[in-house]
Amino acid sequence: MDILFISKYLVVIALIILMLAALRASAYKSTSMGLLGSSVIVNAFALALLIIGGLYNLEFYRDISLALIFFGFVGTVAFAVVLGGDDE
């Protein structure tokens, strides 16, 4: 079996473990922790999509991944600005 193929599956398994860890961490009492956990899950999903799209020849997987990373950033920063409020 190809070593590149195996290493791609290793990364996907590690990403699934990290998504579960981020889900657990986002259940912490603070709102910022939920924001951080959701941001990490979106980025991990974007990377998993990059790997799985290459393996299974999905269409537009790079574009969807780029959109997830970029709009995940925009949403996270917008939510953080609203959460932080105005400067005193």
Partner: peptide, 28 residues
Amino acid sequence: LGQYLLAGIYFILAPFIAHAIANAYWKK
């Protein structure tokens, strides 16, 4: 994976996310 453009974009955006969340948590 050979996605250099995505890596560059993510390299630039990731510190902004971390700082925005930490700043919001500190302020409120």
